[in-house]
Write a protein that binds this DNA or RNA. Structure first.
Length: 429
DNA sequence: TGGAGATGCGCG
DNA sequence: AAAGCGCGCATCTCCA
């Protein structure tokens, strides 16, 4: 086995183990029978596809993603101005000596105003309702944005493009990670995303799986109410909202739908009533008490009883010492922390989350291998971005959708999976 | 001085 | 009684 393949074998076999990243990453251990170990673990197929994927990812990195440097520079100036302005306001309210980037100093300064907090994170600051706390949050957001924009600017190569380091095995579940810079956490707003562009005479073809984790979870749990909704093209988030409020799905407002979306994803992965209440309060300004959140949670699992059973099974496995691993539908393995003690919660969430998130990652990778000869420029978990000459865009869109749906072949019924595709000269579009 | 850990927050 | 998951990155704080 070649050195690169050994490294992939090591990483596939060790997924989920807490390891010092570098050693496992870079040094191929030639002394072991890797093929044998892969076979033994039932991971040959997983490994083989990582081997196929590696050159596709290398080509994607080499190609890079186009950047509109002028636009980015303009945005950088604005962001920097906002950052300074926001910091000035914080210092006006909390004193010139208070560094808004220091949680410790912020906590102390707020305490002097009579606001005692355990944490100065977003939840705590929003909940406080304090004007100075709100300024701190504005300052942090402005700081973050300025930092990120600056980092993108510094990452642009001589060719005017960003060549980020995508790592197909950078996560415990089998998703990609991305670094230097991380193109998987670029701000969602149009001003930010539109700085990432197609070259002259080209367009970006952007395709993403729609509500894919929810669809896969519904399939894994055999949750018929959800599956029926997906099959009939119903709006799943509106459906959940309807189940929780007793309203008609058609009469659900946009805000309620957004909350239901958060409910769907949150409760799916074990969010507590308290967590739900906090989320509703900070993200939607809701007066959501924990009691009411508990009621939502209860109604959610009554509406989707198979999800409840699926969680129950996961809880059992989490406590079962014989259960040492969890697999995606493709067969990818993630080691679990040993049971007993505090880590049982981590075992539970890994047991629930990995088959969903990891299977989606597997499908995306399958699609990428199928698109090996296509000009991929980026990927963000459930999205692929390609850069093609304008006249090829329509055909490529069709091809990408087919490849992404086919990525689930043998894993999840393909008619359960939908892909949205669009094209534009810039990201977002 | 510099490394480890904590804190906080951007994305899917 | 209480816990959404998965990342990367910048900054601050503490300690050797």
């Amino acid at each position: 086995m070649k050195a690169e393949e050994i490294i992939l074998a090591q990483r596939v076999l060790e997924a989920g183990r807490p390891v010092v990243k570098d050693e496992l990453l870079r040094v191929p251990d030639e002394s072991r029978d890797w093929q044998g170990e892969l076979r033994e673990a039932g991971l040959e197929k997983v490994h083989e596809r990582e081997v196929q994927l590696a050159p596709v990812v290398a080509a994607m990195r080499q190609r890079g993603l186009g950047v509109d440097e002028r636009k980015l520079a303009t945005l950088a100036k604005l962001a920097e101005k906002n950052r300074e302005e926001a910091e000035r306001k914080v210092k006006e309210m909390l004193g010139a000596g208070c560094n808004p980037r220091s949680p410790k100093q912020v906590k102390e300064a707020l305490a002097k105003r009579g606001l005692k907090l355990n944490s100065t994170d977003e939840v705590a600051l929003v909940m406080s309702g304090d004007a100075a706390a709100a300024e701190v949050l504005r300052s942090r957001a402005a700081e973050k944005r300025a930092q990120m924009i600056k980092a993108y600017g510094e990452a642009v190569g001589k060719d005017g493009r960003i060549h980020a380091d995508f790592d197909p095995l950078g996560t415990a579940t089998g998703r990609f990670s991305c670094r230097e810079p991380n193109l998987q956490n670029v701000g969602r707003d149009a001003a930010m995303r539109s700085c990432f562009v197609a070259g002259p005479k080209k367009v970006l073809v952007m395709a993403d799986y729609t509500q894919v984790e929810l669809r896969v979870a519904a399939f894994l749990a055999k949750e018929e109410a959800m599956l029926a909704a997906f099959r009939s093209g119903e709006d799943i988030h509106a459906l959940t909202a309807a189940k929780l409020t007793g309203q008609d799905p058609k009469g659900i407002g946009e805000e309620t739908r957004k909350l239901a979306k958060a409910v769907n994803f949150g409760l799916l992965y074990g969010m507590s009533a308290r967590g739900l209440a906090e989320y509703g309060r900070i993200s939607f300004g809701l007066k959501l008490e924990e009691k009411e959140a508990r009621e939502f949670r209860k109604k959610f699992f009554e509406a989707y009883p198979a999800l409840q059973r699926w969680h129950d099974q996961a809880r059992q496995s989490a406590e079962d010492p014989k259960v040492a691993e969890v697999r995606t539908l493709y067969g990818r393995r993630r080691w679990l922390p040993p049971p007993g003690g505090r880590m049982d919660w981590a075992r539970f969430t890994a047991l629930v989350n990995t088959p969903v998130q990891g299977t989606c990652g597997d499908a995306l990778k399958q699609a990428m291998v199928a698109l090996a000869d296509a000009p991929l420029v980026s990927t963000v978990h459930d999205e692929l971005i390609l850069e093609v000459p304008e006249r090829e865009a329509a055909a490529m869109a069709v091809r990408v959708v087919a490849a992404m749906r086919a990525g689930f072949a043998g894993l999840v019924p393909e008619n359960l999976i939908t892909v949205a595709v669009r094209q534009a000269t810039h990201w977002g579009g």
